[in-house]
Design a protein around this nucleic acid. Structure first.
Length: 115
DNA sequence: AAGTTGACGGATG
DNA sequence: TCATCCGCCAACT
């Protein structure tokens, strides 16, 4: 499996995360059949071309925090992700964290891949 | 070829 | 709950 194939796999799963819900890096990796590859989900998102139809902002850490290092990829993703999630009706607590119990995506049945 | 790095995660104190 | 420390693994140096 090439790096690009792996990235596409992650992207196709991330595209399944519905509006108003979030998923964690580790969750996406597991759904892809690649547990313990949470970091590579981040790698894939870092390489995501601007304008791709992938809801990258719905991916948060296992603690419900949004990524800060995303600023490395050129633009200020931290505030951008924050705003996009707010637009979807997702609320943050006083520590800028998302309540995963409430907003984490729980896929029903098989996740359709390569759609 | 070997060491470093990273949009991470879980265990531990 | 927060801080730290490891485990992880492929891309990059």
């Amino acid at each position: 499996m090439t790096q690009d194939e792996r990235n596409q796999l992650f992207y196709s799963i991330i595209r399944c995360v519905p509006h108003g819900r979030v998923a964690t890096y580790g969750q996406i990796a597991s759904l892809a059949g690649l547990p313990k590859h949470a970091r590579h989900v981040g790698v894939a998102l870092r390489k995501l071309p601007a304008g791709a139809r992938v809801p990258w902002h719905r991916i948060v850490s296992s603690r419900g925090e949004i990524a800060r290092r995303a600023a490395n990829s050129g633009r200020d993703c931290e505030s951008e992700q924050y705003g996009l999630l707010l637009d979807e009706g997702i609320e943050f607590d006083d520590n800028d964290r998302i309540c995963l119990e409430r907003y984490q995506w729980k896929p029903r049945g098989e996740v359709r891949v390569r759609g």
